[in-house]
Structure formats: C-alpha cells, structure tokens
Design a protein around this nucleic acid. Sequence first.
DNA 1: ATGGGCACCTGGCTGC
DNA 2: TGCAGCCAGGTGCCCA
Length: 271
Amino acid sequence: MPELPEVETTRRGIEPHLVGRTVVALNVHEPRLRWPIPAGLAVELVGQRVERTGRRAKYLLIELTRGTLLWHLGMSGSLRVLPACAPRGAHDHVDLVLDSGFLLRFNDPRRFGSIHYTTGDPHTHPLLGRLAPEPFDREFDADYLWRITRRRRAAIKTLLMNSHLVVGVGNIYANEALFRARVRPQRAARTITRAEARRLVRSIRAVLTVAIRAGGTTLRDYVGADGNPGWFRQRLYVYERDGKSCRRCRTPVRAITQGQRSSYYCPACQR
DNA sequence: ATGGGCACCTGGCTGC
DNA sequence: TGCAGCCAGGTGCCCA
C-alpha cells in the first residue's frame, strides 16, 4: 500500500471536500475487507458532520460529530472524491456520500484495507494505541533509534518496518531510507552506530518528505484523491531497480529477500 | 520480549 | 493460447 506519503497525500486531497460536509449515506457494496465492515455502520454515520481529518501511521482518520473513522488502505487501496453520480467500477467497495453532491469512494482490489469506527479517543483504539511515534515527532530522533536497536538481532530493515518501533515506513521507503543512510538492509540492528542512527532518522524524514511533495509513489494501483498517480517512482534509487546501475556509483543494484519481502541495495554505497 | 512465518485477496507477469 | 507459479505500497496473529 500506500505507505505514509500515500496516506498523507490522500488525506490532503480529500480534506477540502470533506470538512464541514454532512454524511448522507454510506453505501457498502462489499463488506468483506480485512475486517468486515459492521452492519450498522451506515445508520451510525448518517447525519454526522466531518469536523477534520488526520493521520496516524498509515491510518487515515476522519473525525465526525460523534466519533472517528479509521480507514486503512491496505496494499492496494485508494480513496477518491467523485461526483455522486459517478458509475461504479470493479473493486469499488464503499462510498461515503456527502451532502455536497460528491462522494468518497474506496477502491481496493486486494481487500486488505479496513474501516473502523470508534466513539472514544481514536489514539487509544486497539489498533493505534501501541504504535511507535510518528517519524516527524520530536520523540523520534537518533537517540530513540539508537536505544531501540541496542538489543535487537533482527535486520535493521525488518525493524524499520515494524510499526511498534517505527511508523509509516513500508517496503519502498525502508529500502530508500537505508540507501540514503548508506546502511545495508541486512545489518543486525544492534550493530548500527550512533552516526548511522542519525543518518537513518534524517533519511527517513527526508525520503518521506520528498515523496509527499511528489504525491507519493505509484507502482500499480495507487492514485490520489483526484485520481492522479504519485510521481516519486521516478526518484527511487534502489526499489525495484535490481540489476540496474546505482544512480550514485553505477554498481549494479542487488536484490535479496528478507522476511518474505524484497530488499534492494547498492553493495558499494551501503555497508 | 523477540523473531519468524502465515494468512488474508486479486491481478499481472513470466515461462513452459 | 492456456495455465501454473510467483510476485506485489500491510499487518495482525500464532507459535517457538
């Protein structure tokens, strides 16, 4: 999916169309997402006003009058704002219909996405409560990364993708951040030096920032709220570039498998 | 506590 | 052309 930049791009795209609008209907055409959409959700939402939108890790938050929707895009999900009369296509599972004549449409071929609703503080929701700090929080700094890596034998890349330790970084940006920090993905986390921890924090923030600016990365399914793809793919240094020459030093980029996911790195630039 | 592997699902591509 | 096999932006859960 959608990693942090794609979710943030989606949030920024949909927000102006949602805030201040009232929910007229929730049309669920396929409730079988990663977790089934509760049967009574539509009744609960109708009549509520959208107060604001937010994001926690890769969860999109839509705050309503009496509760909050937590919307996860899974691997292949996307949200678009469309006129209420727009014809439905394949994998268009859910429409949140607004009083503006527009709707928020959820498309998700693989159905790994999910929608949750809570009337409590969303940040204490079971799925959000134990998440690590946001990469742009002050708390997430070189010292934090240094501390959490000390006793870890697992590969640094696996750790960067663990949402209880670092949030928002998926397979694309973990690979890209490691390249920028000149650290090999298979390095045991506990061997990361202070200097490397500092570079990793900077690289994570930098790659996420630039990706957001580019509207995210589109590999296959992802589109923003306006239906346009993200353009960061053209800026990738290593992801899905195995066999091609490193954009910094011309050495062929290498691919390995870690924890059933593909990793890519430059054997010359990364140590 | 930590780490590793599986499951969920559809579609696109490769190679026989 | 057909089809089996493999791969893909995630992550909760189960087991050792």
